[in-house]
């Protein structure tokens, strides 16, 4: 069953003569339980695609359907509720609120829901034990490390049991060891909770944790790779090869 369906998605910034087409008609489907990576050189439209898919930005043309609900035509208010109930977000710069403790940050998406406190508490304990942040719950974001912040962010994204989790360069600000630990956590959650995750990254190592990787170039899907039964190292090598064919700025990978 497809969780996400995108058809002929186009996105243009600017007006008339200055208009720049960032997404040039993208068709995409994501199945439940998939861990999808989106890669591509800088300026290929990765983040724009993610923003459009997760309803933070509007498409110029085409449509996006998540869990059978079409985003286009929804009102601002309905969209916000939809994001809150159906989607989870992990951002490169963590996006935690400085004034809230780790626990409060994680429970934030539930603050307007009717989920009983006990149930919320159980979900929280479940997640933090997988992510290994049980002992920092009462700390403030400025008292914890980047890796811990990103795990907190991941826990917040998952607390509402979303249909789909969007991650925008989640490892971008982390060192490689911390990044690997976080990705391990994400794939564990992906398997254990059958959570669907869609991740934008320019890091081949990060992408190698996914079950499928899409390559974007100049606003179009250039190719896609399935991990299948390959080992992570093999998949990593394959990703690197594709990247070199793709050209552009791979030095960063």
């Amino acid at each position: 069953m497809s969780i996400l369906i995108a058809r002929k998605v186009r996105k243009t910034y600017g007006k008339r003569s200055l208009a720049q087409e960032v997404l040039k008609g993208i068709d995409l489907e994501v199945e439940k339980g998939e861990f999808v990576g989106i890669m591509g050189p800088s300026g290929s439209g990765k983040t724009t695609l993610l923003n459009v898919l997760c309803s933070i930005d509007q498409v110029t043309d085409g449509f996006v359907e998540i869990n059978g609900q079409k985003l286009q035509g929804m009102k601002e208010r309905t969209l916000a509720k939809f994001r809150r109930d159906e989607l989870g977000f992990i951002f490169q710069d963590y996006n935690l609120l400085d004034t809230l403790t780790v626990k409060e940050n994680i429970l934030l998406p539930l603050s307007l829901s009717t989920i009983p406190k006990a149930a919320a508490e159980k979900r929280l304990q479940d997640l933090v034990s997988i992510l290994g942040i049980s002992d920092i719950l009462s700390k403030y974001p400025n008292e914890i490390s980047g890796g811990q912040k990103q795990r907190t962010s991941a826990a917040r994204a998952l607390i509402s049991n979303p249909s789909l989790v969007f991650a925008d360069e989640p490892t971008g600000a982390l060192d490689s060891k911390t990044a690997t630990a976080l990705l391990d956590n994400l794939s564990e959650i992906n398997k254990a909770k059958n959570a669907t995750i869609m991740m934008v990254t320019h890091d081949a190592v990060a992408a190698s944790f996914c079950s499928r990787v899409l390559f974007l170039k100049d606003g179009q899907i250039y190719t896609e790779l399935y991990k299948g039964d390959k080992s992570r190292t093999e998949f990593f090598q394959q990703i690197l090869n594709t990247q070199s064919v793709l050209g552009g700025e791979q030095g960063e990978a």
Binding site: R77, R83, R84, L87, N95, L97, T99, L108, P109, L112
Partner: peptide, 15 residues
Amino acid sequence: ESYRILRKIGFTQDE
């Protein structure tokens, strides 16, 4: 910045 985060994760302007 906080409002940006809150709106991203799905809180409406009215809320």
